[in-house]
Nucleic acid binder design. Structure first.
Length: 1021
RNA sequence: GCCGAAGUGGCGGAACUGGCAGACGCGCUGGAUUCAAAAUCCAGUUUCCCUCAAAGGAAGUGUGGGUUCGAGUCCCACCUUCGGCACCA
């Protein structure tokens, strides 16, 4: 199936010409529109040029570099989820930034790849289907059409022939194919190899057929070999407690659960054991962390990822449990005997059944361990529990298993636990310590068991105090007088036998070595990162290309088969009803039997996997497909991949700092290990745009009407919790400084304790006084001014359609860039849009004749040589704009262009050459007016591939510069000096200046500091 | 609690490697143009003191210290806001 025809868009037939001349300026009609537009009329200009770019295929980019190319540049936007509400003003922020970069780069001769597509699988379309019965594909297509229209309306120079949607069967065919690559891989952590990037690495994904099969497994037969392989695949099935969200009807990844609620919708989430697909991202934890190093990403994002991966180093240590059998039927052995045994063997891969293995980052505190804790789910919990404690432990474990994550975190963190009755022996000193079970130890981290050192761990201390367990100090803090109890930093060892006096770091090294030598422990590394829960129970996601074998009774045998790569894609089954099953059973399990079952050639009955992939899957590799979107043979041609990848600049929201970027890097590394891509990292440079907030709102506070415990909800802001704005008795206002927040979001008056509600104010209600905004009618009342995240409930959402309708796309683009630095959070301001729109009008009038009946050149624009001053402004502007675009400092670039227009507008005549170069500078930012001005200046072709203007530093320099003269660091006067004057020259100039002499009169000059071209400072007494 | 980012006019923000704080834009004030309005153009706009005015002076980049001839920028401590993580041993 061809992706283009499937969506009803015919494939292009002829190669794209770069440019073609539009009708000459004298023609009275253009693109079929009457051409009377003396004033700057954004709407007419914009639709005309959009049509022109489309028809002329101006931005289509063949994979072959054009003659004279200065190199490839792949600039990518994070593709949007096409929601039903259309484009948000946040989208065009990053998209405009990349569009400026690519338009600029084309003018610098770069061969630019700049595509756009749709992250189109996802819940909302399916929820819509549940409500209306409309197939999610229909809804998705409609939403995509809206998004495409809106993006085209903004004049972005995407190569639309590369457009793709993750929901295209021709796309998810390869998503499924990549899944099969992951499924076909195991991670060989010991494998050392040199990649195509020339780097030596340890650890690699390898084909599952290369997995060594232990002889004892081999002996069990082929089915067991297959099960063994299945356990080692990078994509595997695991029965694990998962986050089941009944409201959404799906299981969610840990990352999608926030405070025990779903990230999307805020619905409660339950813990439930379920058979789920997992991706072994933890195998890559180390590389995902260390290979961040060379990337040009913001340090803060790298740190966020590193924290998410959460690498920690420490030691695993074995503790013998008293009175337990080392093996079935064997008699219990004593501590000394065990230790003796261990020192002869070595630290075993798996501990004996009577040994608890713990993970600790502080092996130096081993002498301070006063008890042990196992996670409630720990496999040894049953075996070690004494009969006396059995009932209590069972009850505790039962209760813990029912606790959701919400309960575990929200319950004011009160520690709970239960003694097992068992004791372990501390391997370093033979001390008996009790073993507890408590849910503050997680089964999913480390070994699921800890040694507790209450003196030097906050959680252990809290637990020890609650249950009256002993506390032994073993680390002396470096600062005298600091209490050792509760000290968690590095210090010097005490009460630690032969190790006393060792600094923490050295102690750690020594004891880890000693434990290792005696077979009692070893160095260990752990990660906070967990394997990626990769299945969902919804319809609108990629089906898995996997079959489960059934036995004669139709029951799954646990053995799996993958679909053949040639048979992909696995399409969705036809379904009428999209209502969730109401239980964790996947939607696809309701599919027709033809889809669900088949019989293999060897006669084995097969049932399809009915889970679907999560939305993250499609976005894990779309940047690869853009380079070769129509390839029917491979997911990407290797030569094309080598040419375009990696992405040189990737811009998107910071909300994807961890999930999307980590997942995509993981997939990329698997493909790299398996030889399908040539780079180890997909995105060499990353920039996060800052969120755009709503317009700043003024808020006053009012004591609620008596009896009315009004909630301070946003929705109440217009009514003030029962008051109309004009009816508020003056004495009910409360100053912002007196408003305090109480439990549960309630606001109250600090003085009286009465509840307080927020009340939206208008600009004319307030005035400025002493650095605060205050109420005009009662100036002692301080009010609040803040911008909030745009949201439907707050009613402060700005629709880009409306902005374009009123001011034009160029103004919207320019404003979004002018608001402030790209990475920064910033509030929207409609009058700011008006400001940049006025600038564009001034630029228009500077070049075009406003009084003429038809678009014509302003008579002031003439073929004259620029004056020295004009030349200076021109070249200074070119230099600044060029450098600012390189730095992505678009707001300052626009300021410079405003200065240019402010300068040139007052000059007549205006040299045509300067106006032309200005149009070129402006065009990446405001491409429609840029093209139009270029045409007015007499050019017949698009400026999209015109060379970027160059500047001449010599023309920027002035003959003289003004230099401030300071006395004791304060500016006291100015003098003019020749530009190149050296220190001595400037000093003598300053000293001979009458004004300066007057300042120095009667004082002793101690020192003179001269910074040539900058300033002079006389230090006097 | 831990980690990160940021605090500059009424507002968004600018200020290269320490060197004239407030570029540019918004808003506001006054003026021109107009029958009037919109649009446009011109001037002013950190605060305080002094002055009829001009000129001048002082303070000023979250707070308090420090380094320096000189600090928005560097160092130390703290406060506030935003973002992330949150029993990860």
């Amino acid at each position: 199936m061809n992706v283009r025809t499937w969506r009803g868009v015919p494939a292009p037939e002829r190669p794209a010409p770069r440019t073609a001349p539009p009708p000459p300026a004298s023609t009275a009609s253009f693109a079929g529109i009457r051409f009377i537009m003396p004033r700057y009329d954004a709407r007419r200009i914009e639709s005309r040029w959009q049509k022109f770019w489309d028809e002329q295929r101006t931005f289509e980019t063949p994979n072959e570099p054009p003659a004279g190319s200065t190199g490839k540049l792949y600039v990518l936007d994070m593709f949007p989820y096409p929601s039903g509400s259309g484009l948000h003003v946040g989208h065009p922020e990053g998209y405009t930034a990349t569009d400026i970069v690519v338009r600029y780069s084309r003018m610098r001769g770069k061969h630019v790849l700049h595509p756009m597509g749709w992250d189109a699988f996802g819940l909302p379309a399916e929820e819509h289907a549940v409500r209306t019965g409309t197939h999610p594909r229909i809804t998705t297509e409609q939403n995509i059409d809206t998004f495409r229209r809106q993006l085209k309306m903004l004049g972005f120079s995407y190569d639309w022939t590369r457009e793709l949607a993750t929901t295209d069967p021709d796309y998810y065919r390869w998503t499924q194919w990549i899944f099969l690559q992951i499924f076909d891989s195991w991670y060989d952590a010991a494998h050392e190899w040199t990649g195509p990037d020339g780097r030596r690495r340890r650890g690699r994904a390898r084909p599952i057929r290369d997995l060594p099969i232990p002889p004892e497994v081999h002996a069990l037969g082929p089915d067991d070999v297959r099960r063994f392989q299945d356990q080692h695949r990078l994509a595997y099935i695991s029965e694990a407690p998962v986050n089941w969200c009944p409201a959404l009807g799906t299981v969610l990844a840990n990352e999608e659960v926030i405070d025990g609620k779903s990230e999307r919708g805020g619905h409660p989430v339950e813990r439930l054991p379920l058979r789920q697909w997992m991706l072994r991202i933890t195998a890559y934890a180390d590389r995902l962390g260390s290979e961040l190093e060379d990337l040009s990403w913001p340090e803060s994002i790298k740190l966020l990822q590193r924290n998410w991966i959460g690498r920690s180093t420490g030691a695993e240590v074995d503790f013998l449990v008293e009175g337990l059998q080392p093996a079935a039927g064997a008699p219990p052995r004593g501590f000394d005997e065990w230790r003796e045994n261990r020192s002869r063997s070595s630290f075993p891969r798996h501990p004996e059944p009577n040994v608890v293995r713990v993970y600790t980052t502080r092996p130096d505190t081993l002498f301070g361990a006063t008890y042990m804790v196992l996670a409630p789910e720990h496999p040894l919990a049953d075996a070690i529990t004494t009969d006396a404690q059995r009932a209590a432990v069972a009850a505790y474990r039962e209760q813990a298993s029912r606790k959701s994550d919400l309960d575990r975190t929200d319950l004011a963190r009160e520690k709970s636990g239960c003694f097992t009755g068992a004791f372990a022996v501390n391997p370093v000193n033979g001390q008996r310590i009790p073993i507890w079970i408590a849910d503050y130890v997680l089964i999913s981290y480390g070994t699921g068991a800890i040694m507790a050192v209450p003196a030097h761990d906050e959680r252990d201390l809290e637990f020890a105090r609650q249950f009256d367990l002993p506390v032994i100090e073993v680390v002396q803090p470096p600062q005298a007088g600091e209490s050792a109890i509760g000290f968690t930093g590095d210090g010097v060892a005490i009460h630690s036998g032969e190790y006393d006096g060792l600094p923490t770091q050295e102690f750690k090294r020594r004891i880890t070595e000693d434990l290792h030598a005696r077979g009692l422990g070893r160095e260990a590394v752990n990660y906070r990162l967990r394997d990626w829960l990769f299945s969902r129970q919804r319809y609108w996601g990629e089906p898995f290309p996997i079959w489960h074998e059934l036995d004669a009774d139709g029951k799954p045998t646990g053995l799996m088969r993958a679909d053949a790569a040639e048979s992909l894609p696995v399409l969705h089954p036809h379904m009428e009803n999209f209502r969730p099953t109401g239980n964790p059973e996947p939607m696809l399990s309701k599919a027709p039997d033809e889809w669900l079952y088949r019989t293999a050639e060897d006669g084995v009955r097969l049932k399809r996997e009915t889970n679907s992939m999560p939305q993250w899957a499609g976005s894990c590799w779309y940047y690869l497909r853009f380079a070769d979107p129509q390839n029917g043979e491979r997911f990407i041609d290797p030569e094309v991949e080598k040419y375009w990848l990696p992405v040189d600049l990737y811009i998107g929201g910071a909300e994807h700092a961890v999930l999307h970027l980590l997942y995509a890097r993981f997939w990329h590394k698997v493909l790299f290990d398996r030889g399908h891509v040539s780079t180890a990292e997909p995105f060499s440079r990353l920039v996060n745009q800052g969120m755009i907030l709503g317009e700043a709102e003024l808020t006053g506070y009012v004591r609620a009407p008596s009896g009315g415990a009004a909630p301070s909800q946003a929705a109440e802001r217009d009514t003030g919790g029962g008051f109309q704005r004009d009816q508020i008795p003056p004495d009910r206002w409360v100053s912002l400084t007196d408003v305090v927040e109480q439990a549960g979001d309630q606001l109250a008056d600090r003085v009286t304790g009465e509840p307080v509600v927020a009340m939206r104010l208008a600009a004319e209600d307030v005035m400025k006084q002493g650095g605060c905004l205050v109420l005009k009618e009662r100036p002692e009342i301080v009010v609040d001014s803040r911008a909030f995240k745009m949201s439907k409930s707050r009613g402060n959402v700005i629709n880009p359609d409306d902005v374009v309708q009123a001011y034009g796309a160029d103004s919207l683009r320019l404003y979004e860039m002018f608001m402030g630095p790209l990475e920064q959070v910033k509030p929207w301001s409609m009058s700011g849009v008006e400001g940049v729109s006025r600038f564009l009008s001034r630029a228009w009038r500077m070049i075009a004749d406003e009084r003429a009946d038809e678009v014509a050149l302003n008579p002031a624009v003439q073929d004259v040589e620029p004056t020295e001053e004009q030349d200076r402004l021109l070249h200074r502007t070119i230099k600044a704009v060029t450098e600012d675009v390189e730095k992505l400092s678009f707001n300052t670039a626009i300021s410079r262009m405003m200065e240019f227009v402010n300068g040139f507008s007052q000059w007549e005549p205006r040299p045509r050459s300067a106006m032309e170069r200005f149009a070129l500078l402006l065009s990446p930012f405001a491409p429609h007016i840029g093209e139009e001005l270029w045409r007015v200046l007499g050019h017949g072709t698009s400026l999209a591939y015109e060379p970027w203007p160059a500047f001449d530093a010599a023309r920027i320099a002035e003959a003289e510069v003004e230099i401030p003269v300071q006395v004791n660091g304060k500016v006291r006067g100015k003098l003019r000096a020749p530009t190149g004057a050296d220190q001595a020259a400037i000093q003598s100039l300053a000293e001979s200046d009458a004004q300066v002499r007057a300042l120095l009169d009667g004082k002793t000059v101690v020192k003179v500091i001269v910074v040539p071209g900058r300033m002079v400072n006389f230090v006097v007494k």
